[in-house]
Design a protein around this nucleic acid. Structure first.
Length: 275
DNA sequence: AAATGATCCTGAGAGC
DNA sequence: TGCTCTCAGGATCATT
């Protein structure tokens, strides 16, 4: 669920409701996530104002008065706005209580994380979890040249290179396959073998893919206050290859092929993506 | 040093 | 129906 568009959709849903609000109470029902949650986090955050809710890569950054809370949704995490009196659901691990409204982190697989970074530890973007992240895809830093040079420096399959997230963030397992399909690039070619012209196509494809996903995520945004946590309409409308093994390519009707690269599924059209 | 594999965890769906 | 098996949208850490 949580690819960059989902995380951004989450951020946009949460921010207007909680920015500028004072955190009355933090409740931790399960602290065994990706890493254990700091034991005295509730004490630290109590009574602090949430100044702003930002995003870096797939991390949500909650800026409080004395530091920043880094939240990652892992594979199965989601955050929802809830009324205070709503019953606790299975896998609701952390609840931020702002008085009039609460935010809940629900994460069945517990690959997500909640990490505290006090201002005294320096700039949050220099945090070890953030410092090696690639550029934001919707920033001016994400240029064709940046993508081209980044790929040129890697001797591994281009799909795997994209997933690394140290060139550009936000291209997860779905969007890596989808972007390569749009750019008509075979996922197995070595990253460093890419031509400038193909890098240009891939750059455009990544932006198209992520934009479409973000737009579809807007449907999740609209009913963000409801229970749901449902995925957006991206799959119904846009998916060309992901999870479509053996189904006909939307362009040429060749059956879509599924392969495994670095333990992750990759989908592509052997006809449209010859090299 | 870069590239690859193991690992954390629960739940859904397939196949029998 | 219920059991077992496989797979899942991530990314860090350890190993080669």
């Amino acid at each position: 669920m949580p690819e960059l568009p989902e995380v951004e959709t989450t951020r946009r849903g949460l921010a207007p409701a909680i920015e500028g609000q004072r955190l009355e109470k933090l409740s931790i029902y399960q602290n065994q996530l990706r890493w254990p949650i700091l034991p005295d986090l509730a004490d630290i955050l109590s009574d602090q104002i949430l100044l702003t809710c930002q995003r870096r890569g797939k991390y949500l950054l909650f800026y409080f008065e004395s530091g920043v809370l880094l939240i990652h949704l892992g594979m199965s995490g989601s955050m929802r706005l809830c009324q205070s009196d709503e019953l606790l659901r299975k896998h609701d691990h952390v609840i931020w209580d702002f008085g009039h409204i609460t935010v809940r982190l629900n994460d069945p697989r517990r690959f997500g994380s909640v990490v505290w970074h006090p201002h005294s530890d320096g700039p949050v973007l220099a945090h070890r979890l953030l410092k090696n992240l690639g550029v934001e895809p919707f920033s001016e830093s994400f240029t064709i040249e940046h993508l081209y040079q980044g790929l040129k420096a890697k001797k591994k399959a281009i799909k795997t290179a994209l997933l690394d997230g140290d060139i550009v963030v936000g291209v997860g397992n779905i969007y890596a396959s989808e972007s390569l399909f749009l750019a008509k690039i075979n996922p197995k070619i070595s990253a460093d073998s890419i031509s400038k012209r193909r890098a240009e196509r891939l750059h455009a494809a990544i932006l198209t893919t992520l934009s479409a996903a973000l737009e579809s995520g807007g449907s999740t945004l609209r009913d963000f206050l409801n229970a749901s946590g449902e995925p957006g309409a991206y799959f119904d409308i846009h998916a060309n290859v992901y999870n479509r093994a053996k189904e006909p390519c939307h362009v040429c009707e060749t059956p879509i092929r599924k392969i495994v690269q670095n333990q992750r599924a990759t989908y592509y059209c052997v006809s449209c993506q010859r090299r």
